[in-house]
Design a protein around this nucleic acid. Structure first.
Ligand SMILES: [Mn+2]
Ligand SMILES: [Mn+2]
Ligand SMILES: [Mn+2]
Ligand SMILES: [Mn+2]
Lengths: 218, 218
DNA sequence: AAATAAATTTAGATAAGACTAAAAATTTTA
DNA sequence: TAAAATTTTTAGTCTTATCTAAATTTATTT
């Protein structure tokens, strides 16, 4: 059994490993969890004792297979709770994160399995992120950042790279929600913004936005 | 904001106050939370600082109005989650307690209000206990222990005095569930057992059981 | 290849919450 | 009402999870 704090560290390392392939640095973990590097060093020593991570001084950490399973299970719970909040309790996709951050630590295998069934075994959370199965396996779909699409390419919005409520509310305001079709009309070299069409509406999207919106090309 | 541990102490004192009217003793709290009296003394000093309880050395504690509100809110969450688990997630009434014990500490006013609405604003939990409203008010219904009913009196099962899974599973086995009508056919002076009829079935109920089952007389 | 900068670890503190053992206060019993 | 028993509090320790400041190691520049 792991404490809430341990679970948060394990999950942070898991997420960082999806970005870089090398060992995860103390500083990267500290930044992700808004804590201090010295606290991270203490914790990874403990996680190393518990065989959750492999740790060599000054070399960063890597999750063991066991650690990956633990992490995937926390992520599974986090994302299932997010689906529950949006689908059943009228939360919007920008309101769910902090609550899911708490709910993900509830210990009860039956609870999470029943939630899964109650929701009809969803495969993705409200932000388009895949939900790991009980074994920790995830089904990765092919997706591209909007900023990488070429002129005249089109596809479906399937995810976001930034789950901050500011960004999500901005997308809401623009009418950009997951599942909608987007076509790139024009790319501006000047500021790397893109002109798109969505719901028959033309709009200009800044590079900052286009860099945080995932499209499944079609 | 209160920690999980603080909330557990506050709730324990709240429950103990429904039994005795005097100040709640250190030992009583320690027993309820299966901790040591010295730990309780430490905690009630802190709760006193925070104006949740009134505390005078060696005299036990009493919840302040503020403390009562905090407690009722935790109880509200506990009981609403229990209803959710039973009504929506196929938990039986003897499986919900430990999970609700964790869920009651989740901090999100929106979450609990939405759960309340999602469940249709239930007034009682699966064990027949009343659910406090947002202000902490509870609606107490008139109920009597089965052991206090006289021969030929009858009523509806409305609650239990013992929520242990052993007791609840025993009731399940006997076919005794909340909402059912019970009539007392006979009372045995010998061992204080009662003969009852429920669902047209006659059965003998020991005093231990009769002392833990609440009936609303009719 | 030094020197400098950055990242990481160690050492020492702090706070919450729990425990044991001992002291003090209260209650019960004789 | 004095002695004994019980309850409660205090003192000191421990664990977990933080932090700051200093020391050490690694990486980057000249
Ligand atoms: Mn979390
Ligand atoms: Mn998400
Ligand atoms: Mn609890
Ligand atoms: Mn209950």
């Amino acid at each position: 059994m792991f404490s809430q704090s341990e679970e948060n560290y394990i999950k942070a390392i898991y997420h960082l490993e999806t970005i870089s392939t090398k060992g995860i640095s103390t500083n990267a973990i500290a930044k992700k969890l808004t804590t201090k590097a010295s606290s991270v060093t203490d914790m990874i020593k403990k996680l190393s004792e518990k065989e959750v991570v492999v740790y060599k001084k000054y070399q960063g950490v890597t999750l063991t297979d066991f650690g990956k399973k633990v992490a995937a299970n926390v992520v599974r719970k986090h994302r299932l709770w997010e689906v529950f909040l949006v689908e059943k309790l009228n939360f919007s996709w920008d309101e769910v994160h902090d609550v899911a951050e708490q709910l993900e630590h509830i210990k009860s295998p039956k609870l999470i399995n029943e939630i899964d069934a109650f929701l009809g075994f969803p495969t993705h959370d409200p932000h388009g992120d895949p939900i790991p199965d009980k074994e920790g396996k995830i089904n990765i779909i092919e997706k591209s950042l909007l900023s990488t699409l070429l002129k005249n390419e089109s596809g479906i919005c399937v995810g976001v790279n930034d789950s901050s409520s500011e960004f999500l509310q901005f997308l809401d305001k623009k009418g950009i929600t997951l599942g909608k079709q987007i076509t790139v009309l024009e790319k501006e070299d000047f500021d790397n913004s893109v002109s798109i069409i969505i719901d028959n509406k033309k709009m200009s999207i800044s590079n900052k936005i286009a860099n945080n919106l995932y499209i499944k090309k079609s």
